[in-house]
Design a binder for these strands. Structure first.
Lengths: 197, 197
DNA sequence: GTCTATAGTTTGATAGAC
DNA sequence: GTCTATCAAACTATAGAC
């Protein structure tokens, strides 16, 4: 249950975000949202037309936050390699998975253009931003030369998303870390060992 | 609805496999299973104690099949690079995602040791098998020298699982293919361009 | 082995009082 | 704006006839 400092709509959105992350769209019931938000049924249906509208607000909110957070790391200081490494190695709640990527497994989300849009846009933005950095890095930024920016960026984003899958399967974050380590080694040029990161 | 050539338990398991793949554990109801299998309620509960037991049988069946299928490619002819490429590039129904990896997003699956075990074992086997091939390949198998087998294998498996996520987000298989292309370029040695695959 | 009947719960939503 | 009452449908399962 959330702090009384938040407005009821805010609490409903936060609760929905949590539940969508953990249980997905199908697994998230209005009842559970109301319970977690500390709001009554009438209250929920007063502020939102129903589950889809509430889910849309929650997904947008989660997507915006993820994007800001990733941008913070990717826009930071350092060489291209260092910024990609910082992104790959940043603190994550690995076993919870990606709150945005997770939604792609939900048929009710992918089937609904409006619900899928924030998910698509976020991952698309991430790939684009990574591609820019790879493009910078192939000109002396600590990355292996000759890499295709788009393809390399997709591999980076995929490794993160897939790392979550491997980690959740085994019940341990280790597989995620191992995959990231493998990718970082592949990204570094031959002549120099992958920098400590 | 499945062919009458299959026994009722077989039809129930096939139907459950389909639905688990598409909708996950939470999104799969006994009712839907019965409908797809062309079996009555009494029939389902005669052969299986309930949804968990049926799901377990379905997950085991899917996991076994995936493992056999992957083994067929990974045990095939060719250099280490070629076999990994064959695995990454084999025909996939990309937008449907991985029927095993998908289950890791289901809290009811990860919370249940028995249900998670086949998922864990399958992805663990895959990583182990890929690591063996990487280990072979670093000794002249067309792979970039000096790679850590475990870490590289995890990156390969993660790229596939994450590629599904990217593809499903965008509604197109393209992102999967792009990520695979990026990874293959990273796996090849510097001096030779990635072989046509 | 398969069927229908039944049951208790939850889901997602609406109605109307306050 | 929030509450309680109510609803039709679906969920998961059991009982018992055939």
């Amino acid at each position: 249950m959330y702090s009384a400092a938040m407005s009821t709509p805010e609490r409903l959105i936060s609760a929905t975000r949590e539940l969508l992350w953990e249980r997905g769209y199908v697994g998230t019931s209005p009842r559970a949202i109301q319970r977690l938000a500390g709001a009554g049924q009438g209250s929920m249906y007063h502020h939102f037309s129903g589950k889809p509208e509430l889910a849309l607000a929650a997904i947008r909110s989660t997507a915006d936050e993820l994007r800001s957070s990733a941008a913070g790391v990717l826009d930071g200081p350092g060489t291209a390699y260092e910024r990609i490494a910082a992104y790959l190695l940043r603190e994550r709640d690995v076993l919870r998975g990606c709150p945005v990527g997770r939604l792609t497994m939900d048929p009710d989300v992918t089937a609904d253009r409006a619900l899928r849009a924030p998910v698509d846009e976020t991952l698309d933005w991430l790939r684009g931003r990574l591609a820019e950095i790879v493009a910078e890095g192939t000109a002396g930024g600590g990355l292996r030369p000759g890499l295709d920016p788009q393809a390399t960026a997709a591999a980076v984003a995929a490794t993160v998303q897939g790392g979550y899958v491997l980690a959740r399967a085994s019940g341990s974050p280790e597989a995620f870390d191992t995959a990231v380590r493998g990718l970082l080694a592949l990204l570094a040029p031959d002549d120099e060992p992958a920098p400590e990161a």
